[in-house]
Simulated assay, not measured.
Amino acid sequence: MMDVDLWSKHAKWIESLSTFLGCQLQTVQGSEAIGVDTASATLEGVIGARHSGVVVELVVKLLVTRNDDRGVSVWALVFFFVDKRRVSEEGKCCLAVEWREDQWIRRGWEEDDNGEWAGLEMLD
């Protein structure tokens, strides 16, 4: 399999994830990273129209890894922001969703065990 096969369905995943989350997601320019066995991108979206009231924004990390059987695992970490401040279930960091059988399935809220997302408390 060539590297491009790993990422070849990303447009379908992003379109379907946009529907699943209820907002149009756009890839952050320069965020795509494609390797031999992994690929990722950062996506952004706004729930509803931008206005001067409360704004709900999403930052999504789309991740793909090649399995031992040469298939792929696809999942996304969804970070929610209300008025630029990250919000989540108490003690958790982001909502994890997984691509299974051609649809997105909610895995649940996850903690930031390694502090990887500590710098993502607020949006600029």
Rank of each mutant, 00 (worst) to 15 (best):
A33T: 13
D5L: 11
V87D: 11
K61Q: 09
L43G: 06
R85S: 06
E90Y: 10
T19M: 15
E101W: 06
G30W: 14
E98I: 15
L21W: 02
V87A: 05
L21H: 06
A76C: 01
R85I: 08
L21E: 00
T19K: 07
E101A: 10
A41P: 11
G119W: 03
S73P: 02
G91V: 07
A33Y: 06
M1Q: 12
S52E: 13
G35R: 03
I105P: 04
L25N: 14
V74D: 05
G115C: 07
V28P: 03
H10G: 06
F79T: 00
I105W: 08
G48I: 15
T65Q: 04
S18G: 13
E116G: 07
G119L: 09
V55L: 15
I34Y: 12
A33F: 11
G108P: 10
F20M: 12
V74A: 02
E32L: 15
R66T: 01
E121T: 11
F20W: 05
S18T: 04
A33L: 11
A33V: 15
S73T: 04
S40Q: 10
I105G: 01
D5I: 09
M1S: 15
L6Q: 01
V72F: 11
T42K: 11
G119F: 08
A41I: 09
K84V: 09
Q24R: 00
L120A: 09
C94D: 00
T42R: 13
R107Y: 01
G71I: 01
R85Y: 03
D37H: 14
S31W: 10
G53F: 01
K84R: 12
L77D: 05
E57N: 07
E15H: 02
V56R: 00
G30K: 12
V36R: 12
G115F: 06
N67G: 04
A49I: 05
F80G: 02
V4S: 04
D113T: 03
K84N: 11
L62R: 04
S31I: 08
S8N: 03
D112Q: 10
H51L: 14
V54P: 04
H10V: 01
A39M: 05
N114H: 14
S88C: 14
E89Q: 06
L123H: 12
L120Y: 08
D113Y: 09
V59L: 08
D69F: 00
Q26Y: 02
G91F: 13
D37G: 15
S8T: 04
D3K: 06
G115L: 10
G108R: 10
T27K: 12
A39F: 02
F20D: 05
M122N: 03
V60N: 01
K61S: 05
D3R: 06
L120D: 08
D102T: 14
D69Q: 00
D124A: 13
E32C: 14
D124Y: 12
E32T: 15
Q103D: 10
K12Q: 12
W75Y: 00
A49T: 07
T42W: 08
V78S: 00
F81A: 01
G30M: 13
M1R: 05
V78D: 00
A41W: 15
F20Q: 02
L77C: 01
T27L: 14
L17A: 14
W13L: 09
T38E: 08
E110D: 13
V36F: 09
L21D: 06
L62D: 00
R107C: 08
D37A: 05
A39R: 08
V56N: 00
V36T: 13
K9D: 11
C23F: 06
D112A: 09
L123Q: 14
